[in-house]
Simulated scan of single mutants.
Amino acid sequence: MTSMNQRHLTFLASPEWAETLRTRLLPWLRETGELGDDVLEIGPGPGLTTDLLLELVDHVTAVEIDADLARKLAARLDGSRAEVVHGDATTVDLGSGRFSGATCFTMLHHVESPEAQDRLFARVCQLLRPGGVFVGVDSVASDELRDFHVDDTYVPVDPGTLELRLAAAGFTAITVVSPPGEGHFRFTARRPRD
């Protein structure tokens, strides 16, 4: 089970974070241009990233493990092209080979262990259609982020090992980019076309 402190939750729903996502994440997502028509979002939290995805794709299935966050997001997005599912993305029944794309944005470090992260990667590969793309962004470990995550689940992903971990989960065409000085990394990976 993952957890987030109240300060963290408040920040993730803030106008400042929304603006950061709009100016930094959205252009990159537009550049990838390959998410397709039916996208899985893992760990949307308050849903600011879901809002951006709805600008780009026909349908989003957002899987949120926190019951309260899932309930609030489902109520806010009721009647939209998004479906919010409360559950653990590694176990919830979503239909293998269903999604054209999958995303996770600054949530991997909230998964409780490297082994659980690896199970998530393998499950995402299974849920994608052949040729489907998996894209994500996460933070690079730092003392400042560790302090921000007091009482949170905080298990940073090493971008230096991510390519091997995604390959072990079944992905190909993997890229991991960690822009110097920006404190985050981005990745893309693809389920093989079989």
Results as ranks from 00 to 15, higher is better:
101 G>N: 08
104 C>R: 00
109 H>I: 01
7 R>G: 13
14 S>F: 01
59 H>S: 08
51 D>N: 06
34 E>W: 09
103 T>G: 01
40 L>R: 03
179 P>G: 05
154 Y>R: 12
173 A>D: 15
63 V>T: 04
150 V>D: 09
60 V>T: 08
113 S>H: 11
44 P>S: 05
6 Q>K: 09
51 D>P: 00
109 H>F: 10
32 T>S: 13
155 V>A: 06
184 H>Q: 15
76 R>K: 14
120 L>I: 05
143 D>N: 06
190 R>F: 04
121 F>D: 02
5 N>S: 07
62 A>W: 02
79 G>Q: 09
134 F>Y: 15
13 A>R: 11
18 A>I: 06
70 A>D: 04
179 P>E: 02
13 A>I: 03
84 V>F: 02
73 L>K: 01
41 E>H: 06
61 T>W: 10
33 G>M: 12
114 P>V: 00
9 L>K: 14
165 R>S: 13
125 C>Q: 11
33 G>E: 12
178 S>V: 01
168 A>Q: 13
139 S>N: 11
36 G>T: 12
163 E>Q: 12
21 L>V: 11
92 V>I: 11
132 G>N: 07
99 F>L: 03
134 F>I: 12
132 G>T: 02
32 T>K: 13
110 H>G: 05
131 G>I: 12
161 T>V: 13
131 G>F: 04
147 D>F: 06
45 G>P: 03
178 S>D: 09
34 E>M: 07
134 F>R: 01
136 G>Q: 07
158 D>W: 12
135 V>S: 01
156 P>D: 10
125 C>L: 00
171 F>E: 00
97 G>R: 07
175 T>H: 11
189 A>F: 05
146 R>P: 02
114 P>I: 01
105 F>V: 15
35 L>P: 03
25 L>C: 11
126 Q>H: 10
185 F>Q: 10
67 A>S: 13
180 P>Y: 06
106 T>V: 12
56 L>D: 08
174 I>Q: 04
59 H>C: 04
46 P>D: 05
144 E>P: 00
9 L>N: 03
77 L>Y: 06
55 E>M: 05
179 P>T: 08
184 H>F: 14
127 L>I: 07
95 G>P: 03
123 R>S: 01
17 W>K: 12
10 T>G: 00
193 R>H: 10
133 V>R: 14
118 D>A: 15
112 E>R: 14
104 C>A: 14
40 L>V: 10
97 G>F: 10
50 T>C: 03
41 E>T: 05
